[in-house]
């Protein structure tokens, strides 16, 4: 079995838990930093990034999360989760966890009335992925090691840097689990690499 955690400080946790389900996956709802030791991969759910960041600091998650990423363990961030992962946030002096070489812009499509859904093709994942954008960020630019997996209207909305995947929409709000299952595969592969390295 592989263990995948969903960071449960605030936001859409239940939906991610459902979407990650697979015969060989045990999903763990992570509320305490110590639980990071039990898991092989982690999802940062959608929610409010400023709220989540405050709670990350408050509950001593900051350093353990950085360490988790430094060890090369897979992380999947959706919407607010992607903002937490970015190395730079446009218009803000400091990033949050800075685990992925990209610059994000918050609320890039506008306010809630501009929130929308659309279908996108995604590299490695498939065609017609249902994408629900809610006060969504965009990925303005990415570093040389980062692969762009999907764009919408000329803007980067999904990117991957090794074990780290960031996405500006909410795959967890749809019944289409292909994207989550892609991340599950990233976690499986990371464990295989670990075995050969030893």
């Amino acid at each position: 079995m592989i263990n995948i955690g969903v960071l449960a400080l605030q936001g859409a946790v239940r939906e991610h838990v459902r979407a990650l389900e697979a015969p060989d996956v045990n999903v763990i709802v992570v509320k305490k930093a110590l639980q990071l030791e039990e898991i092989d991969g982690l999802v940062f759910p959608g929610g409010e990034s400023t709220t989540m960041r405050r709670l990350i600091n408050l509950y001593g998650f900051y350093e353990p999360l950085k360490q988790f990423a430094r060890e090369g363990k897979p992380v999947f961030g959706t919407c607010a989760g992607a903002i937490l992962m970015a190395k730079e946030i446009a218009g803000q002096p400091e990033p949050h966890l800075s685990v992925m070489d990209m610059t994000v812009e918050r609320n890039a499509f506008g306010r809630q009335r501009e929130s929308f859904e659309a279908y996108l093709p995604m590299k490695h994942v498939g065609e017609n992925i249902e994408a629900v954008f809610i006060r969504a960020p965009i990925i303005q630019s990415v570093g040389p090691e980062v692969e762009v997996l999907a764009e919408y209207d000329g803007q980067i909305v999904v990117a991957q840097e090794g074990p780290f995947v960031a996405c500006s929409f909410h795959p967890e709000l749809t019944e289409d689990d292909r994207f989550h299952q892609y991340f599950v595969q990233v976690v499986r592969d990371s464990l295989k690499v670990g075995v050969t390295a030893e």
Binding site: G47, E48, A80, S115, F116, E117, Y119, V132, I134, L173
Partner: peptide, 22 residues
């Protein structure tokens, strides 16, 4: 790439993101 705003999923989804919050 048809873009649809104000759908049930987009509107309900916004509230889903507020869960566990104040």
């Amino acid at each position: 790439m048809e873009k649809r705003t104000g759908t049930e999923r987009v509107k309900r989804g916004m509230a889903e993101m507020q869960k566990g919050g104040v």
